[in-house]
């Protein structure tokens, strides 16, 4: 696709060595960039007149525990005028990583980054309002991490009724 070759050119010009790998899977292009250059990358593809990736369609993170690098943050970009879709990916190490926030480039990233912080514990530096979004404010832990348990309750039959009943968190009066 010529549009996405153009995108790669723009990224390579802007970031140079910052572009790590380019994958093509089922017709979708994913570009892995250096985490330190993500804001520059987003700005480059947004402002390039031949690309105009003005829309951040989605932003999320993936946890590869116990493999390292543990986290990957995905930016799904969309160009409304040219009808192109591009995915930027960056990999983060460790248990409490942080990366620059792209709120200045895409204002809709505000809530996406709050949700990633809530669910994965990845901090976004420069975010105006980084606090939990979906879980209660005093919740401990980050639920979508792979080492966070699913938290399911076993089925209560007659033989284990009392045992499970004791573990159930009943409301105190």
């Amino acid at each position: 696709m010529s549009g996405l070759d153009e995108a790669l050119n723009v990224l390579r010009t802007a970031l140079g060595e910052g572009v790590r790998t380019v994958t093509d899977f089922r017709g979708e292009t994913t570009v892995e960039v250096d985490p330190a250059r993500i804001v520059a990358a987003c700005r480059a593809v947004r402002d390039a007149p031949t690309l105009k990736f003005t829309r951040l369609a989605g932003q999320t993170a993936v946890d590869y525990w116990p493999d390292e690098p543990r986290f990957a943050v995905i930016y799904q970009l969309h160009s409304l005028e040219k009808g192109l879709r591009l995915r930027l990916l960056l990999r983060l190490q460790g248990d409490a990583p942080s990366v620059a926030s792209v709120v200045q480039v895409f204002p809709s990233a505000n809530w996406h980054e709050r949700e990633i912080f809530d669910m994965f514990g990845i901090r976004f530096t420069g975010h105006p309002d980084l606090r939990r979004l979906l879980m209660p404010a005093d919740w401990q832990g980050h639920p979508l991490r792979k080492d966070y348990p699913l938290g399911y309750e076993e089925v209560q039959f007659t033989f284990n009724f009392d045992e499970i009943d004791r573990k159930k968190p009943y409301a105190k009066e």
Binding site: M135, P143, Y148, P149, L150, G151, Y152, E153, K168
Partner: peptide, 9 residues
């Protein structure tokens, strides 16, 4: 939904 977020009953 048998998970961390939902009250089981």
């Amino acid at each position: 939904f048998n998970n961390y977020a939902i009250v089981q009953g």
